[in-house]
Design a protein around this nucleic acid. Structure first.
Lengths: 201, 201
DNA sequence: AAAAATTGATTGAATAGTCAGTCACCACGT
DNA sequence: ACGTGGTGACTGACTATTCAATCAATTTTT
């Protein structure tokens, strides 16, 4: 069975512990060297217990993916209707990250490794498809809102959000897989784009 | 030993065959399920022979990475000094791809899977670091050239190239790991960015 | 004949997953 | 208050398989 099947389970202590163990093991060894053994090593209980909670390694990893995507989505800045321009700036900050909560490289590494599995695993890919659409709609809504407020130009919200989404994914990939410090420069240019192509004059 | 150690080797028939086999196996099974056995299965000769040409699986994979990056760099449109704007358009086309030679999803998948290994493997990461810098300099040079020609605005070539690079990586990641068809929209918006933020008025 | 290419058989270490069984706890009837 | 039985958490030992890597032997090339 997956996650908490009953709504009256204990506060899901064990699941969280397993997720944490998986996270640590993934960080240490990388996805392709991630084994049940190694997850068990980071877990206070025994490795066999993992099979009591999950049917298989795949089952566990799929739950872990869901866990991580939840974390990721919770990181989205909430939209206080105040100013769409402020909110967009929050999103840009979040994208290029400085000191977000657990926006460490570890977290980005984990997400990217999971994401890459989507290249060969339909189940994984459909999770990310849903997550991408969620994020994209969130951004598109903000932009639409900003246009109505008259602080953004009359751009296509769908298309603009798509480029934001692409930049977000690109940043995550780039940060983790290259030592070239392209990110600062890219950020400067992206902010120029926001100023000159999005904000009203 | 790696690759062709002598410059007078036979036209590297075997190496190419091994690279091809690795490519096919990678496409079929994905990096984390890629085994010497499976590479051997796609290879006309026996699996043991792989160890005659390479010291270890890692050694083989590292050579494969170099092989793939060479392919990738050869795909860069050459800069005929005619017009920087045409050349930039070529680069955009290449980034968002339509019918490039082997710019199939298979190729993108393979590159992304290799790239993601860089998250945990320093050797892999340094290859991509070098490759990124190569591409970025190429784009920066084109932009600098376009500015001198007066067809681009007076932007910062380094920063602009960085955003191109980010978009390139983001596209590759997105294409392969999500069914959300964000790419068309993102392309439309990116071309708007080029028109309004890069091209002279 | 010497060197290089190629093979099948084999090894020892991991691998995912199983299984029989222990333990703590809780509800129930008496 | 006291058994009694049921349940789920938990474990260590185990299996069958797969893995990377080795090697002695054979074929092919030079």
């Amino acid at each position: 069975m997956n996650q908490g099947t009953s709504f009256l389970d204990d506060p899901d202590d064990t699941r969280e512990a397993i997720m944490r163990a998986t996270y640590v093991a993934l960080g240490k060894h990388g996805y392709s060297d991630l084994t049940i053994q190694r997850i068990g090593d980071e877990f206070s209980k025994s490795k066999s217990l993992l099979y009591h909670h999950y049917d298989s390694k795949d089952d566990l990893l799929l739950d872990f993916l869901e866990f991580m995507l939840t974390q990721l989505e919770e990181q989205l800045p909430v939209y206080k209707d105040s100013g769409a321009d402020d909110h967009i700036q929050d999103i840009v900050d979040q994208t290029f990250v400085f000191g977000g909560t657990h926006t460490s490289d570890d977290f980005a590494r984990a997400i990217l490794e999971l994401r890459t599995q989507g290249a060969n695993d339909d189940a994984f890919r459909s999770y990310f498809t849903r997550s991408d659409q969620f994020v994209r709609k969130h951004v598109a809504h903000t932009i639409r809102s900003g246009i109505e407020q008259g602080i953004f130009r009359d751009v296509d919200p769908q298309e603009t959000a798509a480029l934001f989404q692409l930049t977000f994914v690109g940043t995550m990939t780039q940060r983790v897989t290259s030592d070239d410090d392209v990110l600062e420069d890219a950020r400067a240019e992206f902010e120029r784009y926001v100023r000159e192509c999005l904000l009203a004059e």
